[in-house]
Design a protein around this nucleic acid. Structure first.
Length: 878
RNA sequence: GGGCGCGUAGCUCAGUGGUAGAGCACACCCUUCACACGGGUGGGGUCGUAGGUUCGAACCCUACCGCGCCCACCA
């Protein structure tokens, strides 16, 4: 491996190093005495595949855990997959449908066997894909939300919550998904605006004394109407309160009731009440004293019309879908002259987020978690600062949601999931227990039937931060790694997952699940559009990895991640950071070519003689400081920025250029050390190329003691050498000025010029002397003289106190040079004048901070001097 | 209806009370012995609009305009 190939081939090294890291157990070295550091990966759906959102999420986590591992911590990144109830069952049902099968035909046990098979065969894809990104998680302890231990934890939590009165069974309206035929939680409902209509109907009074008009957006539900409500203060209807209505289609006698829900401003001011199929009406019904069990239901599980308990729905409507029923009802009302008016109207309509079906409020028995009680401590935890949310702006959202939280429906009418540990006796009495035996004991031997339903997937994933560590067992892992240090998740699952983890974690562990909650945004396409399969604008992260390498993709995602903003991913950026990797690769080749290999020490070489070496060590220290600060503040963009500019802008563009042709032992030692620091600092962001180069750097016959994945994060004791910094800063400015003048005056790159330094201080003279060779090479100079140029026709540049002349007799376009100098002088004068104006304002000198005044004075002095010198240079040209 | 965020160079985005930055793109030059996935140089912004606070605002406050997102039962 001593010879680096001419081009950097990510694919080959990525597979090789990942395999090495994993098989050697380097992602979780045994460090029982080290300070623990913990993060859990949001478990991806077991049957899912990697999308760009995962890539971002994984990158952000891996960057952190790699640095903590390098800092010597007992770093643990918990990994595993989620059984994803609805999503997985849906996929499998679709598959067996191809063979003409349904789960009902198969029966529960046979169906579940198929799902498990499916999970076992296709479940490994996403975890293989995570590896391609370089995710350094603890694969040896990979978990699954339905593995044995985890399932035990889920059952225990359910039973405990029940015993603590925080979980109960209740009959009420629930969001029913008629396509999947299951209840879903409020969070799984997406409200979308749909173009609909607003019908006004006429309901006759039972005593034939007249009629009352009601308005509705869902006429079909009138078949289950149980009342008409008006506002108690509405003079139009006051007298009618308590009277009966003969329902137009069913003939059902229903009362006119007073309820504040009826808005006199809206429609006719009277509203039909269907407690069994509308959330508002349900509440009105409750207030009117109707028990949930007595509420009329007119739909089956697939939302087809069925007969109400009172048998009053005319047979022509039975068996119709909601849409058909609506048409039929409207048609009949029209025939009967009961339809008073129709207008178009936009209707906010609830959809199931997975099924896309319109949700039907339906009366069922479900299990609910008393979320309001669990929410309180989670709210407090953020208020007291036990959980820090980054970026902070999300705390308000956190409070707002938790403060208004509703009971959480956790039962699902599915088969794939954790079966609810509740058993019913013949009489309906329920026994909740961790095992059937326990339940039987409680029931005193009566025959029992287990609840058919399973739990919401999020109920189990909420336990991820502690159930993966062995809870309810009191394991060493649990003691050391709970609470986790940080959680990284997209804000889209803030309520689904993060908040529920906080609630369950505090309830069962008595302590917050993580100290910091970092929320990142969505990855969008280059134009800011949300990526979706239907739009066809999705970016497959693995395609990018194939094309540019995992390091480039990781670096891009980190560089574009600035605290929570959505990321517009542009492939050009990935390409750019691939180029960056290549640049680094070639810098390594260059160093090796010149006998520079691995550093023999972790500590910075002490007090080098050459300024350039002292300077670059200081630059490393600077960069490390920036990097560490960025890590502490979770500023990924700043991490990337700091290392990128150091590697390319400082190390490659200047240091390497400066040391070319002068590879003395000291420089070799310093260069080797600096490059090692670069590899280590860059490793969290670009793990693969850094590991490859780490092992490529040692000269023939030598080897590194260990891999960079477990190398020591830099802690150079060195300090920034101010003198060296000043000197190199000067050198860079001088070279840049000369280059700029050359280009602007169209001096051929090959032409070598003489340089005359006028008014040079002793310090400048010394610097010119010390840097004679590099200066000549970088600025393409023939000679350097410490005197003013006696002749005419020279380009001139001003750096600090000195004026440098580059004689260009015959070549120079005096007009162009004059224009150039004039522009430079004008710029300096403009700044000088603006500073002068500020300084002449007593309000400024008296009220501004003394440092600001002092700085303005110094700047003014410098700019005045510079302007003067430039004007003098201009004069010299005649 | 409530809440949040955004509007800075052609594009994507940093920035923050003291006279605007990056990457890409663009223009010109360079086959200089690490790298053309490169090197050098350069052009380009009245920081959405209007007020206010301040010695000083792109940065703080107010209003407005435009864009996006989240939450909410208006029949």
């Amino acid at each position: 491996m001593s010879e680096l190939s001419k081009t950097f081939e990510p694919r080959e090294i990525e597979d090789r190093w990942y395999g090495h890291w994993e098989s050697e157990g380097l992602f979780r070295p045994h460090r029982p005495d080290a300070q623990p550091w913990t993060i859990v990966m949001p478990p991806p759906n077991v049957t899912g595949s990697l999308h760009i959102g995962h890539a971002l999420d994984i990158t952000l986590q891996d960057v952190l855990v790699r640095r903590e591992r390098m800092r010597g911590k007992d770093a643990l990144w918990v990994v595993g997959t989620d059984h994803a109830g609805i999503a997985t069952q849906m996929v499998v049902e679709r598959t067996i449908a191809g063979q003409g099968l349904t789960r009902q035909k198969l029966g529960r046990d046979a169906f579940l066997e198929i799902v498990w098979d499916w999970k076992n065969t296709s479940g490994g894809m996403i975890t293989r894909q995570l590896r391609r990104l370089g995710a350094s998680c603890d694969w040896a302890h990979e978990r699954f939300t339905m593995d044995e231990g985890f399932s035990r934890a889920v059952t225990k939590v359910f039973v405990e919550l029940y015993r603590r009165g925080l979980l109960y069974r209740d009959k009420r309206l629930v969001n029913w998904d008629p396509k999947f035929q299951t209840a879903i939680s409020d969070l799984e409902v997406e409200t979308k605006d749909l173009q609909g209509r607003f019908w006004t109907l006429s309901y006759p009074l039972a005593d034939n004394s007249g009629a009352i008009q009601v308005a509705t957006t869902r006429p079909e539900t009138m078949l289950a109407d149980m009342a008409v409500a008006v506002h108690q203060d509405d003079d139009r209807y006051k007298a009618l309160i308590g009277k009966q209505i003969r329902h137009p289609l069913t003939g059902r006698l229903i009362p006119i009731i007073a309820d504040e829900h009826a808005d006199p401003e809206l429609g006719s001011g009277a509203v039909k009440i269907t407690p069994g199929h509308d959330f508002n009406d349900y509440e009105v019904g409750r207030r009117a004293g109707i028990r949930p069990a007595d509420m009329l239901n007119m739909f089956d599980a697939q939302a087809f019309v069925v007969q109400t308990r009172d048998g009053l729905i005319p047979s022509e409507f039975l068996g119709l879908s909601r849409e058909e029923a609506r048409k039929a009802v409207v048609a009949r009302l029209e025939d009967e002259g009961s339809l008073v008016g129709v207008e178009d109207r936009v209707i906010p309509t609830p959809f199931g987020d997975r099924s896309g079906a319109i949700i039907e409020p339906w009366l069922t028995d479900q299990w609910y978690v008393d979320a309001a009680k669990l929410a309180l401590p989670a709210l407090q935890a953020v208020k007291k600062g036990n959980i820090k949310i980054v970026p902070e702006t999300w705390t308000k959202t956190w409070f707002n949601w938790l403060e208004n939280i509703q009971p959480w429906c956790v039962s699902r009418q599915l088969w794939w999931g954790h079966r609810i540990p509740a058993w019913y006796a013949e009489d309906g009495h329920v026994f909740v227990a961790e095992t059937e035996e326990e339940a039987k004991d409680q029931a005193g031997g009566r025959p029992l039937r287990q609840d058919e339903d399973v739990l919401d997937t999020w109920f189990s994933s909420a336990l991820w931060p502690f159930a993966t560590l062995g809870w309810p067992g009191e394991t060493d892992d649990l003691r050391r790694h709970y609470p986790n240090d940080v959680l990284i998740s997209g804000f889209d699952i803030l309520f689904f997952w993060d908040a529920r983890m906080a609630m369950q974690g505090i309830e069962f562990m008595g302590e917050v699940p993580w100290r910091t909650l970092y929320l990142h945004g969505l990855v969008r396409d280059a134009h800011g559009q949300k990526m979706s399969k239907s739009k066809g604008n999705t970016v497959d992260p693995l395609v990018l990895v194939d094309q540019y390498g995992a390091d480039a993709l990781r670096f891009t995602l980190a560089a574009m991640e600035s605290q929570g903003r959505d990321i517009k991913l542009d492939e050009k950026r990935v390409e750019g950071y691939r180029n960056f990797a290549t640049k680094l690769w070639n810098a390594a080749r260059f160093l090796k070519m010149n006998g520079i290999g691995a550093s023999d020490s972790i500590a910075a070489p002490t007090a080098p003689e050459l300024a350039v070496n002292r300077w670059i060590i200081g630059e490393v220290v600077d960069t490390l400081e920036k990097l560490n600060r960025a890590f502490d503040e979770l500023r990924y963009d700043e991490m990337a920025d700091a290392i990128y500019h150091f590697v390319w802008g400082t190390f490659c563009d200047w240091y390497v250029e400066l040391i070319k042709g002068a590879f003395d032992e000291e420089t070799k030692r310093v260069a080797a050390w600096v490059f090692d620091q670069i590899l280590v600092m860059l490793h969290p962001l670009m793990p693969f190329i850094t590991e490859e180069l780490w092992h490529s750097m040692p000269s023939d016959g030598n080897k590194r003691d260990s891999d960079i994945v477990v190398a020591k994060w830099p802690e150079p004791k060195a300090e920034v050498d101010a003198e060296a910094k000043a000197e190199l800063d000067w050198l860079i400015r001088l070279v840049s000025e000369v280059r700029s003048a050359r280009t602007e005056l169209n001096v051929p790159p090959s032409a070598k010029l003489n340089l005359f330094a006028a008014d040079a201080s002793d310090e400048t003279a010394g610097r010119l002397d010390r840097n004679h060779a590099t200066l000549s090479r970088l600025a393409r100079l023939e000679s350097i003289q410490l005197s003013s140029f006696p002749g005419q026709g020279a380009a001139q540049v001003v750096v600090d106190e000195a004026t440098f002349a580059l004689p260009l007799e015959g070549v120079i376009d005096v007009g162009a040079e004059k224009a150039r100098l004039d522009r430079a002088a004008a710029a300096a004068e403009k700044e000088r004048d603006s500073l002068a104006q500020r300084l002449s304002n007593p309000n400024f000198t008296e009220r501004a901070k003394p440092e600001a005044v002092e700085k303005a004075r110094l700047d003014h002095e410098a700019k005045s001097a510079e302007a003067e010198r430039l004007r003098a240079a201009l004069e010299r040209l005649g």
